[in-house]
Every structure is written in structure tokens, then in C-alpha cells.
Design a protein around this nucleic acid. Structure first.
Length: 439
RNA sequence: GUGGCUGUAGCUCAGCUGGUAGAGCACCGGGUUGUGGUCCCGGUGGCCGCGGGUUCGAAUCCCGUCAGUCACCCCA
């Protein structure tokens, strides 16, 4: 049997990294809850036709089947696929449970998702998304679109990561503008504009004429819009100065102004209106969000979302929503890769109780139990090796304290070498040492 | 899914035009007979990603495959 090997795109962290991930998850969850989002988890699979209902994502969906399946029995329609995001399953869940939910419904959902795409740094086939959404019945007030960045700003701002910038745009602005321009294929135009940073205005203009059926003048006008960006409401004036008019454009501008002004009021510097942001997913109908992590811009957005008006609809029931999702695995993968995240020890243990000989293991266990009762993470030395080796056992793992049973007991801080008498019923470590700390 | 680059010890890397492997760090042991980290001495450890092929002989050449990475696609 040869040595097991990793599976491409399915990352597995070491314990220190997992501890960091768990801290992040705890923090994100608490911020989501402080905004009143309710926890939710949906199953990992959805019927394939549900997953493929929107967009051409078919080839990236992992299909589930039993090893001993009668291939003739199941049609493609009722086979199951692993969800590739949390928005589509959530829309399904809302429709299924609409009678039991109170609207507007605010929920957060932190789960793994799967996409069968070619992995590379910061891009995985299995990764964790931390998602918030608000849906309402029939109509969804636009102020929720302004709330999303605030939640994310608080959540990401509370983590020990580089600063982030949330870029916002509104599909109505682009579509209204394109319509006012008389452009043939708005979808294709959006896709072309989305590449502006990567391939530059010249090649975007070419793409626009080739794929979106734009004239040279239209391409120029589309680029003029895409190049507008501001951290305050002034982008709206810049757009109006382009002289294109359309009711949808005005509606979009008003909504985008509200998002940017709200952000500027509560989280200065967090948001920037950036009219080239398009987002690939075609179910977005209003505000769209992307997020850049300072220093890691080339790896793409770490947190994206938008407003969708038609995702959760069934018959004449309609649940428009807005949501945004943190790509936690990407954030971690990038920061781990750049050595920007470290934790003070590789185990939770704060105290190692040394063992003089196996006859005294019971006494050492008693000490450990007393410390644990007071919430101090403690383990007893695995063997009664020489004390030097026991200290080294702690040192290798970053455990800060070694407890020496005796008469009296003593506790040694192996970083400073300080050693003092201690009583397991009363001794406590400095608060900063009780649990591993990040960075 | 398409294409490019890379793959030698736990880590970072040597190994000329093919002659069955080396360094530093890490790890283990001893010096230091039960309180580590320095220093000295010694040692373990690699089917050279994996599988085929060419060859008397392959880490080295060829093909495939897996993994990492980059570009495209798309996206967290």
C-alpha cells in the first residue's frame, strides 16, 4: 500500500491552522448573531435540477450516486448534487418552509460547499462559506442592501487579517445604462467589463464589439461607465454627466447611493462604489458586492454577494433577497500561504503536569483535574521520562507551563524559566496564556 | 474542463553530457546519573510523487498518471 496522497482541491489543515479557523468561525458567528441573523444549516445535497435552475454551472457540480446504483433507474433530473453555494439551497429552503418562517427572514449559514473546478492557490474544490441573507415576501426594502457591507465590515474587521475593501455596484445601473445606450447583449457586456482590471480597456473594448454587439461608440460609453468609482455619492454625478438616461439607471443609482452613504456613515473607508464590478452569477438583480483583501488583490474576491429578486419564486409566491458570503477557506489559505497567521501553540494545553514516576500518576491526575475544574487546559506528561524531556515535550508544542508535583508543588513558566510554589486549587495562568493566541 | 511550469529525507535544496543518492536545519541518543533551550560527539531517516517504456544500467531520457502552482474558464 503506497502512502496516501492529498486530493486536489480538498485542503486539510494542521491543528494550529484548524484552531485559527475555529477562532475565525466563532468570531464571524458572533458578529452575525449580534446583527440578529438566525442560524441555519441545510443538507449538503440538492436535486440536480434545483442546482442547475440558474446559470450554466452544470459542469462544476459534483454529482452524488451510490456505488451500487441501477443506472437505468434514475433520470438525471432526480439525481443529487453537492451544493456549490449556500444561496441556492437557501432559496429552496425558504420556498419549502415559507409557511413556518417569519418575514423578513434573516439567517446565517456557515457550511462547506463544493465546486469541481481546477484548484490553485486560494481556489479549492471544497471550501467553507460564511453566508448571510435577508429575504422578504413579495418585496424587499432596499435598505437591506446597505446592511450587508456593515455586517461584513464588522465580521472581517474583528479578525486578525489585513484590511478589506468592499466594492459595490448595482446591476440596474449597468443594465439601465446599457439599455439607454441601446446595447444588444447586456449580459455579455457585463462579462467583458468584469475583466477590465485584468486585460485593460483596450481589450475590453474589443470584447464588447465582438461578443456584446457593441458599436465603437457604445463600447467607449460602456468603458466610460466602468471606469467610474468613488467612496462617496459623487459617482452618481459622474454617471449622469455621461448623458445616458433610463428609468432603471436612475433607480439603480439611487439604491447604490444609499449603500455607499450608509457605509460611509457607519464604516468609513469600507466601501467603494465601483461600476465595473459585475459578478458572474446571473441571478443578481440589484446591488452586487465583491471584497478585496489588502495585499491579496490578485487572488480575487474573498467575500461576494448581491441582491436577487427571482431566485426564490414559485407560482405567484415571491421571496426577493439579498446576501453576501465570506470565502473563509480562501482567506485562510492565502494568509497561511503568506505566513501571515500564526498561533502561539499547537495544542490547547496551558499546563503540562510533570510525572516523577508511574506510581505518582494518580497524584498528577488529581492536580490536572483540579486545574481543569477551573477551566485551565491541562494534560499530564505521557511518560515519567527525565524532567528535561518532559519540559521539552511541552516546549515542542508551545505549552507555556510545566507543573512539578512535590512538597510543595511548583509551576514553571518555561519561556522565562521562572518557577514558583503553586497550589492547584488556586493557581491561575495570566489571562493571555490561558488559551492559544493568534499572531 | 484546456494548456504551461514544477515534484529528490519532516523542511529548504545539491546531484555535470544516464553508472542504483548528498548538505544544512529538524528529529533521536550520548556528554549533562530526573528541570529543556547553548555547545560538542554520534545516529535514524529517501523504491528520487506513482506506473509503464528506452537502455547492460534511469533521480537523470520518453509516455501516462497523481499532486502543487500559473494562465484560460469561472468564481469564495
Amino acid at each position: 500500500m503506497s502512502k496516501p496522497r492529498p486530493i486536489s482541491g480538498f485542503p486539510e489543515w494542521l491543528p494550529p491552522q484548524r484552531m485559527i479557523e475555529q477562532r475565525f468561525l466563532d468570531k464571524i458567528k458572533s458578529v452575525f448573531e449580534v446583527y440578529g441573523y438566525a442560524p441555519l444549516e441545510t443538507r449538503a445535497v440538492e436535486p440536480l435540477d434545483q442546482l442547475l435552475r440558474k446559470g450554466e454551472t452544470s459542469k462544476e457540480v459534483y454529482v452524488l450516486r451510490r456505488l451500487q446504483e441501477d443506472s437505468s433507474a434514475s433520470s438525471p433530473d432526480d439525481s443529487l448534487g453537492l451544493h456549490f453555494d449556500l444561496t441556492v439551497p437557501f432559496a429552496r429552503y425558504v420556498l419549502e418552509n415559507s409557511g413556518k418562517l417569519n418575514f423578513p427572514f434573516r439567517r446565517y449559514q456557515i457550511q462547506k460547499v463544493w465546486r469541481g473546478e481546477r484548484p490553485q492557490e486560494g481556489r479549492y474544490r471544497e471550501f467553507v462559506q460564511c453566508d448571510i441573507d435577508v429575504v422578504d415576501r413579495d418585496t424587499l426594502p432596499a435598505h437591506y442592501e446597505a446592511e450587508m457591507p456593515l455586517v461584513i465590515g464588522d465580521a472581517l474587521g474583528a479578525l486578525p487579517i489585513p484590511p478589506v475593501t468592499i466594492q459595490v455596484n448595482n446591476r440596474k445601473v449597468c443594465e439601465g445604462y446599457y439599455r439607454g445606450l441601446g446595447l444588444g447583449d447586456p449580459e455579455a457586456a457585463l462579462r467583458a467589463v468584469d475583466k477590465l482590471d485584468k486585460i485593460g480597456p483596450g481589450r475590453v473594448a474589443t470584447l464588447l464589439t465582438e461578443t456584446a454587439g457593441a458599436t465603437d461608440a457604445q463600447a467607449k460609453a460602456v468603458l466610460a461607465l466602468a471606469e467610474i468609482s468613488s467612496t462617496d455619492a459623487s459617482f452618481a454625478d459622474s454617471v449622469r454627466a455621461l448623458g445616458v438616461s433610463d428609468p432603471l439607471l436612475d433607480e439603480g443609482l439611487a439604491e447604490l447611493v444609499q449603500v455607499v452613504e450608509t457605509a460611509a456613515a457607519y464604516a468609513p473607508g469600507l466601501c467603494v462604489a465601483d461600476l465595473k464590478i459585475a459578478r458572474g452569477l446571473d441571478y443578481y438583480t440589484g446591488t452586487v458586492y465583491e471584497t478585496q483583501l489588502a495585499g491579496f488583490e490578485r487572488f480575487g474576491s474573498i467575500c461576494s454577494g448581491g441582491r436577487y429578486d427571482n431566485l426564490a419564486t414559485s407560482g405567484n409566491e415571491r421571496f426577493p433577497g439579498v446576501g453576501i458570503s465570506i470565502g473563509l477557506t480562501r482567506v485562510l489559505g492565502l494568509l497561511f500561504g503568506a505566513d501571515k497567521l500564526a498561533i502561539s501553540r499547537e495544542v490547547p494545553t496551558c499546563v503540562l503536569v510533570a510525572l516523577s514516576d508511574e506510581e505518582h500518576r494518580r497524584a498528577a491526575d488529581d492536580i490536572a483535574a483540579a486545574l481543569r475544574r477551573r477551566g485551565i487546559p491541562t494534560e499530564v506528561s505521557p511518560t515519567a521520562a527525565k524532567y528535561g524531556k518532559q519540559i521539552r515535550y511541552a516546549e515542542r508544542r508551545g505549552i507555556p507551563f510545566v507543573w512539578f508535583p512535590g512538597d510543595p508543588d511548583s509551576i514553571k513558566d518555561i519561556r522565562s524559566g521562572d518557577q514558583a510554589e503553586a497550589d492547584p486549587a488556586t493557581w491561575s495562568p495570566p489571562a493571555a496564556d490561558l488559551h492559544p493566541t493568534i499572531n
